[in-house]
Amino acid sequence: MTTDAATLLERTDRELMQLHLAGDPDAFGEIFRRHKDRMWAVAMRTCGNRELAADAVQDAFISAFRRSASYRGDAAVTTWLHRIVVNACLDRLRRERPTSELPEFDLTDGKDAHSQLETRLDVHAALASLPEAQRAALILVDMHAVPVAEAAEILGVAEGTVKSRCSRGRTALAALITRDGSAIAPTTDRPMEPGRES
C-alpha cells in the first residue's frame, strides 16, 4: 500500500505510524522529515560532538523504523522518538568514553562575540562532565523546554526524579562554571513551553 505525498502531509504522527506499520513505504519518511531537525538538536546537545551525534541519530531513526511495532500509541510519537534518540546517544557516548576526552564542540557560529563563545564552551564542557542522567534531564527540560511529564516518559523515570535531576544538575553546573571565577549572570528566565503534541 502507498499513500500519496499530499495525503501524508495531512496525517498526524500517529496516523503515519499506523500507515508505516501497515506497510506504507513512505509514511516513516514523512515522520523523519518532520522531526529530523529536533532530533538532530537533541542528539547534538546530548553527544556534544557532531560525528557522534550524526551516528547516533542515524542509529535512532533506523532503530525506530525497525521497532515501530513497539510504539504503543499511548505517548506522542515525538516522545517515543526522543527516547530512542537519547538512548542512542547515551549508547554512543558509553562506547566512546573509555578513549575520549570531554566532547568537543563545533565552533561554526562566527557571529558570536568571543566572550559569549567562551561562555558557551564553558557551559558545554561543564554539561558534558555531569552525570549522564542529570545531563539528559537538563538537555530535555531546560534546553529543549520539554515538559517535565514528557521528559519523565522519555527518560523512563518519575516526574519527581526528573525535577530532582534537573535541580541537582543545575546546582552542579553552576558550581562547575563559576569554579574558576567566570561567574555566569542569570539572564531573563524563560517560561516553560506548554505541552506539545505531535
Partner: peptide, 17 residues
C-alpha cells in the same frame, strides 16, 4: 542558580545537515 535560563538561551544547533 540561573542555569536554566542559561541553558535555554544557548543557540540551537540548527537543522540536520
Amino acid at each position: 542558580t540561573g542555569m536554566r535560563a542559561l541553558l535555554a538561551g544557548l543557540p540551537d544547533p540548527g537543522p540536520m545537515p
